[in-house]
């Protein structure tokens, strides 16, 4: 049985401008200790998927619908607030994109760390301080006792993200939801943080759901990758398969738009023409159809289902022409 099993997750936001379907029927599973990448452009619904699972979608305006969100044999969807709070930060933790704003500037690091243990492990503040110091040492922060007394503004961005990671791992959660954990950091720091996450995952056996728009991060970290577009999954595959032979035209486009060191520096970088879809007014057919170089009349008629490929049961593509466009070069012209 997988650690996490999400089936038919829908998230809708009712705004003045109309109803926005941020997540539109997403299903995926995640095994224990596995790292699953969730990739897509901004606004494709990947962060919302993350938040929806631990019930952090503000309501109103948001509404979450799902057939099931099974975590470790327990149904998360429909849990009441008290039970959900027991899961949050305890069994499932989350790291956010911007470490600069994700820590409370008015409370000391120590206070922000210990409150998690006080809440979930019923520790006294003194006991908690000890555990927290260990936690900070684990994420490679020197002199943790002193750091506990400091305030977030006294720490660098990388340090703060380490603190966030330490905070998330304090209760030894089974699942870590990482929402663009490295986007706001310098490239060198990014590598350090990713390395740290990998090491900690190895140590604790935590499963990670890694949300990012950075394909490089996914390539380095994830075992499997889900690609999202317009609130729907368009392709799911192991990392190797995906990078080797992208089957959805959108995935091909994404991969082609990554600059490579080996490439011609003078050549213009490929970009997918058009703009990301307006989630309030999705086309009736495939959401990528207006931007797709391979679209034909069928594509505009109905939403293509995410169907396993005949040749590889482990991967699935939501494209009507996936079987025709077997050549990876076909998608990335």
């Amino acid at each position: 049985m997988p650690l996490l099993d999400v089936q038919d997750l829908f998230v809708r936001f009712d705004t003045h401008g109309g109803s926005v379907r941020a997540v539109d029927g997403v299903s995926f599973t995640l095994e224990e200790g596995e790292t699953l990448g969730l990739v897509g452009e901004s606004g494709s619904g990947k962060s919302v998927t993350n938040l929806a699972m631990i019930g952090l979608i503000p309501s109103p305006p948001g509404t979450v619908q799902a057939k099931t969100i099974q975590f470790d044999g327990r149904e998360l969807f429909g849990l009441d607030d008290v039970e959900m709070r027991h899961v949050r930060g305890n069994l499932i933790s989350m790291i956010f994109q911007d470490p600069m704003t994700s820590l409370n500037p008015l409370l000391s690091i120590g206070r922000q760390l210990t409150e998690v243990l006080e809440l979930h492990k019923k520790m006294t503040r003194k006991e908690a301080r000890g555990v927290c110091a260990e936690g900070l040492a684990d994420v490679g922060i020197p002199n943790p006792e002193r750091r506990l007394k400091q305030f977030p503004h006294e720490l660098s961005g990388g340090m703060r993200q380490r603190v966030m990671i330490a905070m998330a791992l304090l209760c030894k959660p089974k699942l870590l939801l990482a929402d663009e954990p490295t986007t706001a950091l310098d490239v060198t720091i990014q590598a350090q943080i990713l390395e740290l996450m990998g090491a900690l995952q190895h140590k604790h056996g935590t499963a990670i759901l890694l949300v990012t728009h950075d394909l490089g991060v996914v390539a380095g970290m994830a075992d499997r990758v889900n690609v999202m577009y317009g609130g729907r999954l368009v392709e799911t595959a192991t990392t190797d398969d995906l990078f080797g032979t992208p089957r959805h035209p959108y995935t091909s486009g994404l991969l082609a738009s990554v600059p490579t060191l080996a490439g011609d520096a003078e050549a213009e970088l490929f970009s997918i023409p058009g703009a990301p879809p307006d989630l309030a007014a999705l086309p009736p057919g495939c959401a990528f159809e207006p931007r797709c170089a391979h679209a034909d009349t069928r594509c505009a008629e109905r939403v293509p289902p995410l169907e396993p490929l005949a040749e590889n049961a482990g991967r699935a593509v939501a494209c009507l022409r996936a079987e025709e466009l077997t050549s990876p070069a076909g998608g990335a012209s």
């Binding site: 631990i54 952090l56 709070r85 027991h86 899961v87 949050r88 930060g89 305890n90 933790s93 989350m94 956010f96 911007d98 704003t101 994700s102 820590l103 409370n104 500037p105 008015l106 409370l107 409150e115 998690v116 809440l119 979930h120 966030m164 905070m167």
Partner: peptide, 26 residues
């Protein structure tokens, strides 16, 4: 509307704690 309030909720804190401990001071 700050990110750190979302962080506080993600820790599993009750709304009352979030408001009194994390939001009120700011």
């Amino acid at each position: 509307s700050q990110d750190y309030i979302r962080t506080a909720y993600a820790k599993g804190l009750a709304p009352r704690t979030v408001i009194l401990r994390h939001a009120l001071k700011g």
